[in-house]
Design a protein around this nucleic acid. Structure first.
Lengths: 187, 187
DNA sequence: ATTTTTATGGAGTGATCAGTCAATCTAAAA
DNA sequence: TTTTAGATTGACTGATCACTCCATAAAAAT
Protein backbone atom coordinates (compact mmCIF):
# COMPACT_ATOMS: atom_id res chain seq x y z
CA UNK A 1 0.00 0.00 0.00
CA UNK A 2 1.50 3.32 -0.99
CA UNK A 3 1.61 6.33 1.28
CA UNK A 4 -1.46 7.98 -0.17
CA UNK A 5 -3.52 4.89 0.58
CA UNK A 6 -2.03 4.67 4.07
CA UNK A 7 -3.06 8.24 4.74
CA UNK A 8 -6.61 7.65 3.57
CA UNK A 9 -6.93 4.45 5.56
CA UNK A 10 -5.62 6.11 8.71
CA UNK A 11 -7.91 9.11 8.24
CA UNK A 12 -10.92 6.84 7.89
CA UNK A 13 -10.16 4.98 11.09
CA UNK A 14 -9.64 8.18 13.06
CA UNK A 15 -12.56 10.14 11.61
CA UNK A 16 -14.98 7.36 12.51
CA UNK A 17 -13.64 7.12 16.04
CA UNK A 18 -13.04 10.79 16.86
CA UNK A 19 -14.96 12.77 14.25
CA UNK A 20 -13.57 15.31 11.81
CA UNK A 21 -12.90 17.79 14.56
CA UNK A 22 -11.33 15.32 16.90
CA UNK A 23 -8.62 14.16 14.53
CA UNK A 24 -5.76 16.52 13.78
CA UNK A 25 -3.85 16.05 10.57
CA UNK A 26 -0.77 15.39 12.64
CA UNK A 27 -2.38 12.29 14.14
CA UNK A 28 -3.45 11.07 10.73
CA UNK A 29 0.14 11.39 9.49
CA UNK A 30 1.52 9.61 12.53
CA UNK A 31 -1.03 6.78 12.27
CA UNK A 32 -0.22 6.44 8.58
CA UNK A 33 3.50 6.30 9.34
CA UNK A 34 4.40 9.33 7.24
CA UNK A 35 5.66 12.80 7.97
CA UNK A 36 3.36 15.75 8.42
CA UNK A 37 4.44 17.34 5.18
CA UNK A 38 3.74 14.18 3.18
CA UNK A 39 0.07 14.42 3.99
CA UNK A 40 -0.05 17.91 2.52
CA UNK A 41 1.91 16.77 -0.50
CA UNK A 42 -0.98 14.49 -1.44
CA UNK A 43 -3.87 16.63 -0.20
CA UNK A 44 -3.72 20.39 -0.37
CA UNK A 45 -5.96 20.85 2.67
CA UNK A 46 -7.63 18.76 5.33
CA UNK A 47 -10.95 19.32 3.63
CA UNK A 48 -9.53 18.04 0.33
CA UNK A 49 -8.51 14.91 2.17
CA UNK A 50 -11.98 14.45 3.65
CA UNK A 51 -13.75 14.90 0.33
CA UNK A 52 -11.28 12.66 -1.50
CA UNK A 53 -11.81 9.98 1.12
CA UNK A 54 -15.56 10.20 0.60
CA UNK A 55 -15.32 10.00 -3.19
CA UNK A 56 -12.99 7.01 -3.13
CA UNK A 57 -15.08 5.22 -0.55
CA UNK A 58 -18.21 5.60 -2.64
CA UNK A 59 -16.26 4.56 -5.71
CA UNK A 60 -15.18 1.43 -3.91
CA UNK A 61 -18.76 0.63 -2.90
CA UNK A 62 -20.09 1.26 -6.39
CA UNK A 63 -17.50 -0.86 -8.14
CA UNK A 64 -18.30 -3.69 -5.72
CA UNK A 65 -21.97 -3.37 -6.58
CA UNK A 66 -21.26 -3.22 -10.30
CA UNK A 67 -19.20 -6.40 -10.07
CA UNK A 68 -22.15 -8.26 -8.53
CA UNK A 69 -24.50 -7.23 -11.30
CA UNK A 70 -25.38 -9.60 -14.13
CA UNK A 71 -26.91 -7.82 -17.10
CA UNK A 72 -28.78 -10.95 -18.14
CA UNK A 73 -30.73 -11.19 -14.89
CA UNK A 74 -34.28 -9.90 -14.76
CA UNK A 75 -34.86 -6.58 -13.05
CA UNK A 76 -36.06 -7.86 -9.70
CA UNK A 77 -33.11 -10.19 -9.46
CA UNK A 78 -30.70 -7.37 -10.23
CA UNK A 79 -32.31 -5.14 -7.65
CA UNK A 80 -32.13 -7.86 -5.07
CA UNK A 81 -28.47 -8.38 -5.89
CA UNK A 82 -27.73 -4.72 -5.41
CA UNK A 83 -29.67 -4.71 -2.15
CA UNK A 84 -27.83 -7.73 -0.78
CA UNK A 85 -24.48 -6.54 -2.04
CA UNK A 86 -24.94 -3.14 -0.44
CA UNK A 87 -25.64 -4.70 2.93
CA UNK A 88 -22.81 -7.20 2.59
CA UNK A 89 -20.37 -4.47 1.67
CA UNK A 90 -21.61 -2.46 4.62
CA UNK A 91 -21.04 -5.36 6.99
CA UNK A 92 -17.59 -6.08 5.59
CA UNK A 93 -16.71 -2.39 5.67
CA UNK A 94 -18.41 -1.01 8.75
CA UNK A 95 -16.13 1.98 9.22
CA UNK A 96 -16.50 2.93 5.57
CA UNK A 97 -20.28 2.67 5.75
CA UNK A 98 -20.36 4.74 8.90
CA UNK A 99 -18.07 7.32 7.39
CA UNK A 100 -20.36 7.76 4.39
CA UNK A 101 -23.27 8.62 6.64
CA UNK A 102 -21.14 10.79 8.89
CA UNK A 103 -20.08 12.69 5.77
CA UNK A 104 -23.67 13.05 4.54
CA UNK A 105 -24.60 15.06 7.60
CA UNK A 106 -21.52 17.22 7.57
CA UNK A 107 -21.00 20.53 5.77
CA UNK A 108 -18.31 18.88 3.63
CA UNK A 109 -21.09 17.32 1.54
CA UNK A 110 -21.44 20.62 -0.30
CA UNK A 111 -17.88 20.25 -1.58
CA UNK A 112 -18.59 17.17 -3.69
CA UNK A 113 -18.61 18.14 -7.36
CA UNK A 114 -21.66 17.51 -9.54
CA UNK A 115 -19.53 15.26 -11.70
CA UNK A 116 -18.62 13.03 -8.78
CA UNK A 117 -22.20 13.00 -7.55
CA UNK A 118 -23.38 11.85 -10.96
CA UNK A 119 -20.80 9.05 -11.04
CA UNK A 120 -21.89 7.89 -7.61
CA UNK A 121 -25.57 7.60 -8.47
CA UNK A 122 -25.26 6.31 -12.04
CA UNK A 123 -25.73 2.65 -11.20
CA UNK A 124 -28.80 3.17 -9.03
CA UNK A 125 -30.28 5.72 -11.39
CA UNK A 126 -29.99 3.20 -14.25
CA UNK A 127 -31.86 0.54 -12.33
CA UNK A 128 -34.57 2.96 -11.35
CA UNK A 129 -34.99 4.17 -14.92
CA UNK A 130 -35.39 0.66 -16.16
CA UNK A 131 -37.86 -0.20 -13.40
CA UNK A 132 -39.83 2.85 -14.40
CA UNK A 133 -39.92 1.79 -18.06
CA UNK A 134 -40.88 -1.76 -17.14
CA UNK A 135 -43.77 -0.38 -15.15
CA UNK A 136 -43.23 -2.64 -12.16
CA UNK A 137 -43.02 0.21 -9.66
CA UNK A 138 -45.89 1.93 -7.95
CA UNK A 139 -46.71 5.17 -9.70
CA UNK A 140 -44.97 7.29 -7.13
CA UNK A 141 -42.50 10.04 -7.75
CA UNK A 142 -39.23 8.24 -8.65
CA UNK A 143 -37.19 10.45 -6.32
CA UNK A 144 -39.40 9.38 -3.42
CA UNK A 145 -38.82 5.72 -4.18
CA UNK A 146 -35.09 6.31 -4.49
CA UNK A 147 -34.86 8.09 -1.18
CA UNK A 148 -36.97 5.52 0.65
CA UNK A 149 -34.94 2.73 -0.88
CA UNK A 150 -31.74 4.28 0.34
CA UNK A 151 -32.96 4.84 3.87
CA UNK A 152 -34.29 1.28 3.99
CA UNK A 153 -30.79 0.02 3.25
CA UNK A 154 -29.25 2.27 5.90
CA UNK A 155 -31.86 1.23 8.46
CA UNK A 156 -31.44 -2.46 7.83
CA UNK A 157 -27.68 -2.09 7.94
CA UNK A 158 -27.91 -0.33 11.25
CA UNK A 159 -29.96 -3.18 12.66
CA UNK A 160 -27.59 -5.82 11.34
CA UNK A 161 -24.62 -4.06 12.88
CA UNK A 162 -26.18 -3.62 16.31
CA UNK A 163 -27.73 -7.07 16.66
CA UNK A 164 -24.87 -9.41 16.07
CA UNK A 165 -26.42 -12.44 14.43
CA UNK A 166 -25.13 -15.58 12.85
CA UNK A 167 -24.47 -15.59 9.13
CA UNK A 168 -27.72 -17.47 8.47
CA UNK A 169 -29.79 -15.15 10.61
CA UNK A 170 -28.28 -12.20 8.81
CA UNK A 171 -29.18 -13.72 5.46
CA UNK A 172 -32.69 -14.28 6.74
CA UNK A 173 -33.06 -10.66 7.79
CA UNK A 174 -31.83 -9.55 4.39
CA UNK A 175 -34.38 -11.78 2.67
CA UNK A 176 -37.21 -10.56 4.90
CA UNK A 177 -36.36 -6.92 4.53
CA UNK A 178 -35.98 -7.21 0.79
CA UNK A 179 -39.45 -8.72 0.53
CA UNK A 180 -40.75 -5.88 2.66
CA UNK A 181 -39.01 -3.35 0.47
CA UNK A 182 -40.11 -4.94 -2.77
CA UNK A 183 -43.71 -5.15 -1.62
CA UNK A 184 -43.55 -1.53 -0.66
CA UNK A 185 -42.34 -0.10 -3.96
CA UNK A 186 -43.93 -2.39 -6.56
CA UNK A 187 -47.52 -2.57 -7.77
CA UNK B 1 -35.75 34.20 25.67
CA UNK B 2 -33.07 33.98 28.35
CA UNK B 3 -29.38 33.80 27.61
CA UNK B 4 -29.14 30.04 27.93
CA UNK B 5 -31.82 29.61 25.27
CA UNK B 6 -30.11 32.18 23.07
CA UNK B 7 -26.87 30.26 23.30
CA UNK B 8 -28.53 26.98 22.38
CA UNK B 9 -30.43 28.54 19.48
CA UNK B 10 -27.28 30.16 18.14
CA UNK B 11 -25.30 26.95 18.50
CA UNK B 12 -27.94 25.01 16.59
CA UNK B 13 -27.91 27.43 13.67
CA UNK B 14 -24.12 27.44 13.46
CA UNK B 15 -23.59 23.69 13.96
CA UNK B 16 -25.98 22.89 11.13
CA UNK B 17 -24.29 25.36 8.80
CA UNK B 18 -20.63 24.86 9.70
CA UNK B 19 -20.45 21.59 11.61
CA UNK B 20 -19.20 21.05 15.16
CA UNK B 21 -15.63 21.70 14.11
CA UNK B 22 -16.40 24.75 12.07
CA UNK B 23 -18.09 26.70 14.84
CA UNK B 24 -15.91 28.10 17.61
CA UNK B 25 -17.52 28.81 20.95
CA UNK B 26 -16.59 32.46 20.47
CA UNK B 27 -18.83 32.67 17.41
CA UNK B 28 -21.68 30.99 19.27
CA UNK B 29 -21.37 33.56 22.04
CA UNK B 30 -21.27 36.44 19.61
CA UNK B 31 -24.25 35.15 17.63
CA UNK B 32 -26.16 34.70 20.87
CA UNK B 33 -25.28 38.22 21.96
CA UNK B 34 -23.51 37.18 25.16
CA UNK B 35 -19.97 37.29 26.40
CA UNK B 36 -17.56 34.43 25.98
CA UNK B 37 -17.53 33.68 29.67
CA UNK B 38 -21.31 33.52 29.88
CA UNK B 39 -21.35 30.54 27.56
CA UNK B 40 -19.04 28.66 29.89
CA UNK B 41 -21.10 29.68 32.86
CA UNK B 42 -24.03 27.68 31.47
CA UNK B 43 -22.06 24.85 29.86
CA UNK B 44 -18.88 23.58 31.39
CA UNK B 45 -17.40 22.53 28.05
CA UNK B 46 -18.24 22.77 24.36
CA UNK B 47 -19.10 19.09 24.40
CA UNK B 48 -21.52 19.63 27.28
CA UNK B 49 -23.21 22.26 25.18
CA UNK B 50 -23.50 19.93 22.21
CA UNK B 51 -24.96 17.08 24.24
CA UNK B 52 -27.35 19.39 26.09
CA UNK B 53 -28.53 20.79 22.79
CA UNK B 54 -29.21 17.27 21.55
CA UNK B 55 -31.11 16.25 24.66
CA UNK B 56 -33.29 19.33 24.66
CA UNK B 57 -33.98 19.05 20.95
CA UNK B 58 -35.16 15.48 21.34
CA UNK B 59 -37.17 16.47 24.38
CA UNK B 60 -38.87 19.14 22.32
CA UNK B 61 -39.68 16.66 19.56
CA UNK B 62 -41.00 14.08 21.99
CA UNK B 63 -43.22 16.47 23.87
CA UNK B 64 -44.65 17.61 20.55
CA UNK B 65 -45.42 14.01 19.65
CA UNK B 66 -46.90 13.30 23.06
CA UNK B 67 -49.21 16.29 22.70
CA UNK B 68 -50.60 14.91 19.43
CA UNK B 69 -51.40 11.56 20.95
CA UNK B 70 -54.93 10.66 22.02
CA UNK B 71 -55.01 7.68 24.36
CA UNK B 72 -58.55 6.78 23.21
CA UNK B 73 -57.55 6.29 19.59
CA UNK B 74 -56.94 2.78 18.29
CA UNK B 75 -53.36 1.71 17.78
CA UNK B 76 -53.10 2.26 14.05
CA UNK B 77 -54.52 5.74 14.41
CA UNK B 78 -52.05 6.56 17.16
CA UNK B 79 -49.15 5.27 15.09
CA UNK B 80 -50.28 7.29 12.11
CA UNK B 81 -50.53 10.35 14.31
CA UNK B 82 -46.99 9.88 15.55
CA UNK B 83 -45.78 9.32 12.01
CA UNK B 84 -47.45 12.46 10.70
CA UNK B 85 -46.47 14.51 13.69
CA UNK B 86 -42.82 13.46 13.36
CA UNK B 87 -42.71 14.58 9.75
CA UNK B 88 -44.57 17.80 10.46
CA UNK B 89 -42.24 18.62 13.31
CA UNK B 90 -39.30 17.87 11.03
CA UNK B 91 -40.62 20.22 8.37
CA UNK B 92 -41.33 22.98 10.84
CA UNK B 93 -37.94 22.47 12.48
CA UNK B 94 -35.57 21.57 9.68
CA UNK B 95 -32.37 22.65 11.40
CA UNK B 96 -33.34 20.74 14.54
CA UNK B 97 -34.10 17.60 12.54
CA UNK B 98 -30.85 17.89 10.66
CA UNK B 99 -28.94 18.45 13.86
CA UNK B 100 -30.36 15.27 15.38
CA UNK B 101 -29.04 13.21 12.49
CA UNK B 102 -25.73 15.05 12.42
CA UNK B 103 -25.37 14.23 16.10
CA UNK B 104 -26.24 10.57 15.55
CA UNK B 105 -23.21 10.11 13.34
CA UNK B 106 -20.83 12.01 15.56
CA UNK B 107 -18.71 10.67 18.42
CA UNK B 108 -20.71 12.84 20.84
CA UNK B 109 -23.50 10.26 20.70
CA UNK B 110 -21.56 8.16 23.19
CA UNK B 111 -21.89 10.93 25.76
CA UNK B 112 -25.68 10.68 26.06
CA UNK B 113 -26.57 9.06 29.39
CA UNK B 114 -28.63 5.88 29.51
CA UNK B 115 -31.24 7.77 31.47
CA UNK B 116 -31.65 10.37 28.74
CA UNK B 117 -31.71 7.68 26.07
CA UNK B 118 -34.51 5.91 27.88
CA UNK B 119 -36.54 9.10 28.16
CA UNK B 120 -36.12 9.75 24.47
CA UNK B 121 -37.38 6.35 23.36
CA UNK B 122 -40.13 5.84 25.94
CA UNK B 123 -42.97 7.02 23.75
CA UNK B 124 -42.02 4.92 20.75
CA UNK B 125 -41.17 1.91 22.87
CA UNK B 126 -44.62 2.08 24.45
CA UNK B 127 -46.36 2.04 21.09
CA UNK B 128 -44.23 -0.84 19.87
CA UNK B 129 -44.92 -2.83 23.00
CA UNK B 130 -48.64 -2.40 22.60
CA UNK B 131 -48.49 -3.27 18.91
CA UNK B 132 -46.63 -6.41 19.87
CA UNK B 133 -49.28 -7.38 22.44
CA UNK B 134 -52.10 -6.65 20.00
CA UNK B 135 -50.43 -8.96 17.52
CA UNK B 136 -50.88 -6.66 14.55
CA UNK B 137 -47.22 -6.62 13.59
CA UNK B 138 -45.41 -9.12 11.45
CA UNK B 139 -43.56 -11.59 13.62
CA UNK B 140 -40.22 -9.94 13.09
CA UNK B 141 -37.70 -8.98 15.69
CA UNK B 142 -39.14 -5.83 17.33
CA UNK B 143 -35.81 -4.04 17.16
CA UNK B 144 -35.75 -4.57 13.39
CA UNK B 145 -39.18 -3.03 13.01
CA UNK B 146 -38.20 -0.12 15.21
CA UNK B 147 -35.07 0.60 13.24
CA UNK B 148 -36.79 0.33 9.87
CA UNK B 149 -39.59 2.54 11.09
CA UNK B 150 -37.14 5.19 12.13
CA UNK B 151 -35.22 5.16 8.90
CA UNK B 152 -38.46 5.31 6.93
CA UNK B 153 -39.34 8.52 8.73
CA UNK B 154 -35.89 10.00 8.08
CA UNK B 155 -36.02 8.99 4.41
CA UNK B 156 -39.45 10.45 3.83
CA UNK B 157 -38.45 13.61 5.62
CA UNK B 158 -35.41 13.94 3.44
CA UNK B 159 -37.57 13.65 0.34
CA UNK B 160 -40.08 16.19 1.62
CA UNK B 161 -37.34 18.68 2.35
CA UNK B 162 -35.59 18.36 -1.01
CA UNK B 163 -38.69 18.35 -3.22
CA UNK B 164 -40.53 21.44 -2.21
CA UNK B 165 -44.17 20.61 -2.66
CA UNK B 166 -47.44 22.30 -1.88
CA UNK B 167 -49.07 21.60 1.46
CA UNK B 168 -51.56 19.20 -0.17
CA UNK B 169 -48.87 17.32 -2.06
CA UNK B 170 -46.91 16.96 1.14
CA UNK B 171 -49.95 15.58 2.91
CA UNK B 172 -50.42 13.16 0.03
CA UNK B 173 -46.84 11.94 0.27
CA UNK B 174 -47.26 11.42 3.98
CA UNK B 175 -50.44 9.41 3.40
CA UNK B 176 -48.80 7.29 0.70
CA UNK B 177 -45.68 6.61 2.68
CA UNK B 178 -47.62 5.74 5.79
CA UNK B 179 -49.63 3.17 3.85
CA UNK B 180 -46.37 1.77 2.50
CA UNK B 181 -44.92 1.63 5.97
CA UNK B 182 -47.99 0.12 7.56
CA UNK B 183 -48.25 -2.54 4.87
CA UNK B 184 -44.60 -3.34 5.43
CA UNK B 185 -44.72 -3.96 9.16
CA UNK B 186 -48.20 -5.42 9.74
CA UNK B 187 -49.49 -8.88 9.01
C1' DA C 1 -29.21 45.71 55.92
C1' DT C 2 -26.00 42.25 55.13
C1' DT C 3 -24.42 38.31 53.33
C1' DT C 4 -24.34 34.89 49.88
C1' DT C 5 -25.24 33.13 45.63
C1' DT C 6 -25.78 33.48 40.87
C1' DA C 7 -25.26 35.93 36.38
C1' DT C 8 -22.44 38.45 33.13
C1' DG C 9 -18.60 40.43 31.06
C1' DG C 10 -14.34 40.35 28.45
C1' DA C 11 -9.44 40.36 28.46
C1' DG C 12 -6.05 36.95 28.75
C1' DT C 13 -3.53 32.22 28.16
C1' DG C 14 -1.50 27.98 27.05
C1' DA C 15 -2.22 24.54 23.91
C1' DT C 16 -3.18 22.98 19.57
C1' DC C 17 -3.61 22.85 14.83
C1' DA C 18 -3.54 23.44 9.69
C1' DG C 19 -0.49 24.45 6.59
C1' DT C 20 4.57 26.12 4.99
C1' DC C 21 9.19 25.63 3.74
C1' DA C 22 13.75 24.56 2.84
C1' DA C 23 16.53 20.63 2.81
C1' DT C 24 17.36 15.93 1.50
C1' DC C 25 16.43 11.75 -0.88
C1' DT C 26 15.05 8.75 -4.94
C1' DA C 27 14.74 7.37 -9.39
C1' DA C 28 13.93 7.94 -13.91
C1' DA C 29 14.90 10.69 -18.08
C1' DA C 30 18.27 12.92 -21.00
C1' DT D 1 26.98 10.65 -15.87
C1' DT D 2 24.18 14.53 -15.19
C1' DT D 3 19.81 16.65 -14.79
C1' DT D 4 15.45 17.07 -13.40
C1' DA D 5 11.21 16.22 -11.27
C1' DG D 6 8.80 14.35 -7.87
C1' DA D 7 8.63 12.32 -3.07
C1' DT D 8 9.59 12.78 1.80
C1' DT D 9 10.91 14.83 5.93
C1' DG D 10 10.11 17.42 10.29
C1' DA D 11 10.96 21.72 12.39
C1' DC D 12 8.51 25.87 12.39
C1' DT D 13 4.71 29.51 12.45
C1' DG D 14 0.80 32.37 12.69
C1' DA D 15 -3.70 31.86 13.78
C1' DT D 16 -7.24 30.04 16.32
C1' DC D 17 -9.50 27.94 19.92
C1' DA D 18 -11.41 26.18 24.34
C1' DC D 19 -11.40 27.57 28.53
C1' DT D 20 -9.89 30.53 32.84
C1' DC D 21 -10.05 34.23 35.89
C1' DC D 22 -11.22 38.06 38.17
C1' DA D 23 -14.16 42.11 38.41
C1' DT D 24 -18.69 43.63 38.76
C1' DA D 25 -23.60 43.57 38.94
C1' DA D 26 -28.01 41.62 40.06
C1' DA D 27 -30.85 38.71 42.75
C1' DA D 28 -31.90 35.82 46.66
C1' DA D 29 -31.48 34.48 51.18
C1' DT D 30 -30.68 35.65 55.93
Amino acid sequence: MDKEQEILAAALRLFVEFGFHGTPTSKIAKEAGVANGTLFHYFKTKEDLIVALYNRTKESLNSYLAAQLNEQDPLEERMKRVYFASLEWGLENKPQFHFIQQFHFSPHLAKVSDEDKEKQTRLHAGLMRQASLDGVLKSLRPALIGTILGSHVYGTHQYLVNADLSAEQRKEVMEETFVMLWGMITK
